[in-house]
């Protein structure tokens, strides 16, 4: 890992700390209030706030996890740095696509 990847991984980790906390609080709130899927979608659809919140979450996860996977591959597999970087980038893009799809499903009107 070089200094650039280090900064991106730490920065995304720092961003995710409050995002995870809010996400957990939202889960508890929704379940304890007994909200249905329709109730939740009524609040999230068309909401720029929830789109921004979970959009930022997905982007942070994709970057953070991809860098971590790259480190694991370079240390624990015979792959060269470049190959590990390509595989990790593919993994990150997959996370980004799956996450973006999930966010779109709940925020698009």
């Amino acid at each position: 890992m070089n200094v650039g990847l280090y900064v991106w991984q730490r920065a995304t980790a720092a961003l995710m700390v409050p995002l995870v906390l809010v996400h957990v609080v939202v889960i508890f709130y929704a379940t304890r209030k007994g909200m249905t899927a329709a109730d939740i979608l009524a609040r999230t659809r068309g909401s720029i706030v929830w789109a921004s919140f979970y959009g930022a979450f997905v982007v942070a996860v994709a970057i953070h996890a991809a860098i971590g996977v790259r480190n694991v591959l370079t240390e624990w597999s015979p792959l060269e740095d470049r190959s590990a970087g390509v595989l990790a980038a593919v993994f990150g893009l997959l996370l980004l696509a799956l996450g973006a799809r999930a966010v779109a499903a709940v925020v698009l009107p």
Binding site: M1, N2, V3, Y6
Partner: peptide, 9 residues
Amino acid sequence: VGASGGCHA
């Protein structure tokens, strides 16, 4: 020391 294989490893 900030390159790959440096302190961040």
